[in-house]
Computed example of a mutant assay.
Amino acid sequence: MEVWIGRDGERHGPYTEADVRQWLASGEVSPADLGWYEGLADWQPLSVLFPSAQAATDETATIPPMPPVATDALADVASFRRRLGAWIIDYLILMLPATIIGFSMGAPAALARFSAQLKAGVGLEVAAAEYAHTMHPAALLALLAGFIYYALFEQSRWQATPGKRALGLRVTDLEGQRITLGRSLLRNAVRLANVVTSLIPLICYLAVAWTARRQGLHDLLAKTLVLNGRAGDTDTRPASSTGGSTFSA
């Protein structure tokens, strides 16, 4: 479990639960400091969150500075669920240009032939293979459109596709900064390669569920992160109970 600590209106972390317990016991953090972890509706005193790890120190003593944060410990990595939701939105958006491309490149005629072949007794495998062969150029063009869509939006001032922006996400480098066009092209070239090889659900996205910083294969190779919070937002603290909790593909 990753724990955030709030002090003097600033958020520090995330830290592991073991570290927080150790700092409470040694007096490096105060039981009065506020804490938050994913699933809580609001910040609570550390004494409430970890009642068995009280510091054996004088509460009137000067509160020490916060323990240092690793330079790459960035806030609010996006969860698999939110990234999946953003992907679904983008997929629905990309269905429009894909449909236009398909219709302009003979999809109605190909479907009509496919149906006629089935009625004439041609095997489903044969008819489907012919349909796929006919529509192969259109499928490649639709994939290229999707590649351009992702690459341009994710390196833009939004730092996100419309789907990611709708769910309050942004793509950054490992320092939390806007990515370059070259890095965006690399990130999405990995995604494109996984689409072509039909491995995208297994390799590219499922890693988001178990890697430490919720990175897919494309994130790992391009050294990128997907974080909660739209580009330009100044307040990235976990939401309070009045604004809903933050749930960190």
Rank of each mutant, 00 (worst) to 15 (best):
M1N: 08
E2K: 15
V3G: 02
G9A: 06
E10D: 06
R11P: 04
R11I: 12
G13R: 03
P14Y: 09
P14S: 07
A18H: 03
E28C: 00
A32I: 12
G39H: 10
G39M: 09
D42Y: 04
Q44L: 14
P45V: 13
L49N: 00
L49Q: 07
F50Q: 06
S52E: 11
A53V: 04
A53C: 05
A53F: 11
A56G: 09
D58Q: 13
D58Y: 02
D58S: 13
E59T: 14
T60R: 15
A61M: 14
M66H: 02
P67W: 10
P68Y: 12
L74Q: 08
V77Y: 05
A78E: 01
R82V: 11
R83V: 08
G85F: 00
D90A: 05
D90R: 07
L92I: 13
L94Q: 10
L94E: 07
M95G: 06
A98T: 02
T99N: 10
G102R: 04
F103D: 07
S104V: 04
M105L: 12
M105N: 05
A107V: 10
L118T: 15
K119L: 15
K119D: 15
L124R: 15
E125G: 14
V126N: 02
A128K: 13
H133N: 05
T134S: 08
T134Q: 11
M135V: 00
P137A: 00
A138I: 02
A139S: 05
A139E: 08
L141E: 00
Y150W: 11
F153T: 01
E154P: 01
E154T: 08
E154V: 05
S156L: 03
K164I: 03
K164R: 10
R165N: 11
G168S: 03
V171F: 07
L174R: 12
Q177A: 13
T180Y: 00
L181I: 02
R183C: 02
L186K: 00
N188A: 04
A189W: 08
L192S: 09
A193D: 00
A193Y: 04
I200M: 15
I203L: 03
Y205R: 04
L206M: 13
A207Y: 01
A207M: 12
A212E: 06
R213E: 10
H218G: 13
D219H: 01
K223V: 01
K223Q: 01
L225T: 12
G229W: 02
G229L: 02
D233A: 10
D233K: 09
T234H: 14
T236D: 13
R237W: 13
P238F: 07
S248V: 01
S248D: 00
